[in-house]
């Protein structure tokens, strides 16, 4: 029986590449990042062509993702956040594409790689922190001591606030990574049952069908959660709290 975690194995494609002594070999994870980029770009640019009045199905879908993200940004960050809209939108669509592509058989889920989710979230974390410091200067550090707190609570509260602030990129990345890994592992385990149980395998097969639908839900939900939490962090940076 094939190990249920073998699906996460990074397999190099083509020759080993090096840049300044760093290994940048192309692999299945990278392949699906590129596929996601091409697919989403094609979807969003080619579907929205010239018809202005009544959009067809695929164009409505493209417009829906746009309006959905607009709503997330405007509701969670506000008008000031619209400057960051292209980034939030890209983030959402990229993660969504990664999650959904991963459900296809033989596809690789690059969002199930902790390094990928962590790289994205640490970049967001650093970017947001820099924005907050530029916007508020030293006032930013008041963020770690909520106003109205008694002074004697400060020694206890400040470390807690700093710790919770620093754990943001970790929680953000681990949430997405763990969801993807858990779902895909479970699907693989049940797939193994289908084979090993023989004729009785249709029972786990039925379960697998339901699980696949559930995975689609999780894929969309996790992309949404990632985006909305990014928006919340961004609004914290813009307005403090």
């Amino acid at each position: 029986m094939v190990s249920s975690i073998a699906q996460f194995q990074i397999k190099p494609i083509g020759a080993e590449l090096h840049l300044f002594g760093i290994d940048i070999s192309f692999n299945n994870s990278a392949l699906f990042m590129i596929i996601a980029t091409i697919l989403v770009s094609a979807f969003l640019t080619q579907s929205v062509k010239s018809s202005y009045t009544i959009p067809n199905r695929i164009q409505s879908l493209a417009e829906m993702t746009y309006e959905f993200t607009t709503k997330i940004v405007s509701e969670n960050v506000g008008i000031e956040g619209m400057a960051y809209f292209p980034l939030i939108f890209s983030l959402f669509m990229f993660i969504l594409a990664g999650n959904l592509l991963g459900i296809l058989p033989y596809a690789y889920t690059f969002t199930s790689q902790i390094i990928v989710t962590f790289a994205i979230s640490i970049a967001i974390f650093l970017g947001i922190t820099v924005i907050a410091i530029i916007k508020h200067g030293t006032k930013f550090f008041r963020f770690f001591l909520p106003s109205g707190t008694p002074v004697y609570m400060a020694p206890l509260l400040i470390p807690i606030e700093i710790l919770s602030y620093l754990s943001r990129p970790i929680s953000l990345s681990v949430r997405l990574f763990a969801n993807m890994v858990a779902g895909h592992t479970m699907m693989k385990v049940f797939g193994g049952f289908v084979i090993s149980l023989g004729a009785a395998g249709f029972v786990p097969l039925l379960f697998l069908v339901a699980l696949t639908a559930f995975e689609v839900l999780v894929a969309v939900l996790q992309a949404y959660v990632f985006t909305i939490i990014t928006c919340i962090y961004l609004s914290d940076a813009l307005y403090l709290h």
């Binding site: 840049l19 940048i24 192309f26 990278a30 996601a36 890209s90 994205i120």
Partner: peptide
């Protein structure tokens, strides 16, 4: 390599 390709593709 994953980070490299993530940066490129993103």
């Amino acid at each position: 390599s994953q980070i490299f390709w993530l940066i490129i593709s993103f």
